[in-house]
Design a protein around this nucleic acid. Structure first.
Lengths: 199, 199
DNA sequence: CAATTAGTACTGACTAGTTAGTCCTAATTT
DNA sequence: AAATTAGGACTAACTAGTCAGTACTAATTG
């Protein structure tokens, strides 16, 4: 007795396991069979909960986006109780800590998916595109406020700078994954922060 | 008659077709069968020339790296007959033209592969890592020279700036592919060029 | 109160197609 | 003679997805 306690836990277990696999291996190279094997869930149960592998991945993407926006963006870039400069700094620290905990493996779950899926699946692309846009806007607001309160140079364009910062961050995560060192991320954060401020 | 002119062309044809497919779909999602079908080459002929799909992909990667270094990096960033500032400008123009011709599809063949393969295949990772390093060094030399001749601000660190520029470029290509617009690339180039120069 | 129905969660067996790669012989080209 | 290509049969593992049916619980009905 005791080995039938998996009642009403299959769906959560599948989501948990698939979240890790999609991040590690990507969407396409992750097979439903591997998700099933690692989660101990039967195929028939999987297809009872999800109508397809795509539906599962889109649900997981939505969950990760929501989590990132409420746990990271809201608590750093949008945390108006601290100064814009410190908000941006805190944001970089959070991202660095995340990739340090991953030992520079896996990379950005959103960037990975954007590269893998943007050309071949419009559902993934529109979600990622809208999310990146909101992310840029959060950075932009932070910069705009930092210019107003004197944290940042007044001769920079907040919109352009925000776009540059997000691009640079995603590229740095890509480089960190390739070089297997956090340096691109740390150096990028340092350089961006310096460039935003007065000489 | 006339449709048997594929003599001694199988290898080149496979490389040509696979180069496109690996760029468009990635390494793993591209099947040997699809390469064969599109190139009109038989499986036995394929395995006569290449011992595996991996060997083919590594060969193609080496070719693309060599081509990029001699056709793009050498002729822009390292073209010492023009000024550092104009070299960097020309480099950005080449990259923008490339992705414009692709209508913001496909992305960077190197960045795509770096994200897909760095964690799972050390042969791909070491090649990409060494290539990115050389690319950064080319940018760094260009900046260093630009500081010396007065093109760029003297208070920037060429090493850090080069790392930032490559990261930003790769991230901007990712964003361009996701948003399906060249703006991230164009804005990034403009902003970087401005930041490098005196106010 | 007993019988029925409906909804949720789950199972095992199955399909039809794809995957990379092998093996062999015969023909053709250089 | 050596290199290259054609043609095809084949393997073993893997791919996403289907299907009929079981077990249990809660609400509904006669």
């Amino acid at each position: 007795m005791g080995d039938k306690i998996k009642v009403r836990k299959s769906k959560e277990k599948v989501i948990e396991v698939a979240t890790g696999l999609f991040h590690r291996k990507g969407y396409q190279p992750t097979s439903v069979d591997e998700i099933l094997e690692r989660s101990g869930v039967k195929k028939s149960t999987f297809y009872y909960h999800f109508k397809s592998k795509e539906e599962l991945a889109l649900k997981i993407l939505d969950m990760r986006i929501e989590e990132f926006e409420s746990d990271v963006i809201s608590k750093t870039l949008c945390e108006t109780s601290i100064s814009p400069k410190n908000r941006l700094h805190k944001f970089y620290e959070r991202v660095k800590a995340f990739h340090q905990s991953l030992k520079c493996y896996e990379g950005c779950p959103f960037g990975n998916l954007a590269i893998e899926m943007s050309d071949i699946n419009e559902k993934f692309r529109t979600r990622l595109s809208a999310f990146f846009k909101r992310w840029e806007e959060a950075i932009e607001s932070c910069i705009r406020e930092g210019i107003e309160n004197g944290d940042f140079r007044s001769d920079i364009n907040p919109t352009l700078a925000a776009g540059l910062i997000l691009s640079q961050l995603e590229g740095a995560i890509m480089m960190a994954k390739t070089y297997k060192t956090l340096d691109p991320l740390a150096n990028g954060a340092q350089t961006v922060l310096k460039l935003l401020q007065l000489a």
